[in-house]
Design a protein around this nucleic acid. Structure first.
Lengths: 154, 154
DNA sequence: TTAAATTAAATTGTGTACAATACATTTCAT
DNA sequence: ATGAAATGTATTGTACACAATTTAATTTAA
């Protein structure tokens, strides 16, 4: 079949979503060597960040914080449990809920992780101003897209 | 173990990378219903976008355009081939290369895909200005992080 | 108050991602 | 011309990501 010029909206260089998607994977790659040292994947690191902050939460709360569902979290949490970093136990009040909490080993890992954000800032060479500015814009974009999704599901 | 206050850099709400990562997945979710209609996943849609634009390319060129490696692309391309959308054939000049090109069915799909970017703009309610502004910022951040990665691998 | 609806996790199945490795082909330095 | 290095894909193994379904527990409404 013959070639015709692609309409500009369909060109790769004009895809906002692709740029974000590629950006996300490149960022994960930048974390990799630092996370390897403490034995976590990027997704596992995010779960640990939530737990260091909240000490204990349910699978559902983790999913809401990270925008992940139980199909992703359950096996991930089982791996963190197998690594001895977290505990998984049914709530006594509501046995449908599974409470996730940190072991001593899980808490101890925080002191090894605390240097990672600094390493990332160094790697990307973003100033504090740029960082705050980008974070704000991306958060508001996230809120809009998340809103569009929840509106669509309704 | 006892709770101490998490240092601000380790808090989820201050993670630039997480915001981008969540944004990427929420965007993909917004595409999903539209891509379902034409039988593509988001990654497959990106490959088709490159092919509609370049008509033919090697697996390596696809990987460079999309920041993906052969371990991801090979099975994905086999599924597109099984769906009758693309051809995969060894180059005669250099038999290490696999040339990817579109079938008539693959070309025909472009006319069904052309409306998708408009649907996304509608869903997110981004103005043209906001879109261009965000695209530019993400592209420049992508370039910086990619640069940081290639510098690190060197 | 108990049957129906809702909720919370887990499971299953498909499709990425990517590191590491393997393999075949090509290129290059001697 | 030839053995070593480089190149381009494919394969393997681990870990997400998410839709769809299942199971069990809780809430509700008639």
């Amino acid at each position: 079949m013959q070639k015709t010029t692609t309409s500009p909206e369909l060109m790769l260089e004009n895809q906002l979503c692709f740029t974000i998607y590629a950006c996300s994977r490149e960022f994960t790659k930048l974390y990799q060597p630092h996370l390897d040292k403490i034995g976590l994947t990027y997704s596992q690191y995010l779960v640990m960040i939530v737990l260091w902050e909240k000490q204990q939460c349910t699978v559902k709360e983790l999913g809401e914080a990270l925008f992940l569902d139980s199909g992703t979290l359950t096996p991930l949490l089982k791996r963190l449990q197998a690594a001895g970093l977290i505990l998984r136990e049914r709530s006594l009040q509501d046995e449908r809920k599974v409470l996730i909490s940190l072991t001593d080993k899980g808490w101890a890992l925080q002191s090894e992780a605390v240097c990672i954000p600094g390493k990332m800032a160094e790697g990307t060479m973003l100033s504090a101003d740029e960082f705050v500015n980008l974070l704000g814009q991306f958060k508001s974009l996230l809120a809009r897209v998340h809103e569009a999704n929840t509106a669509a599901t309704k």
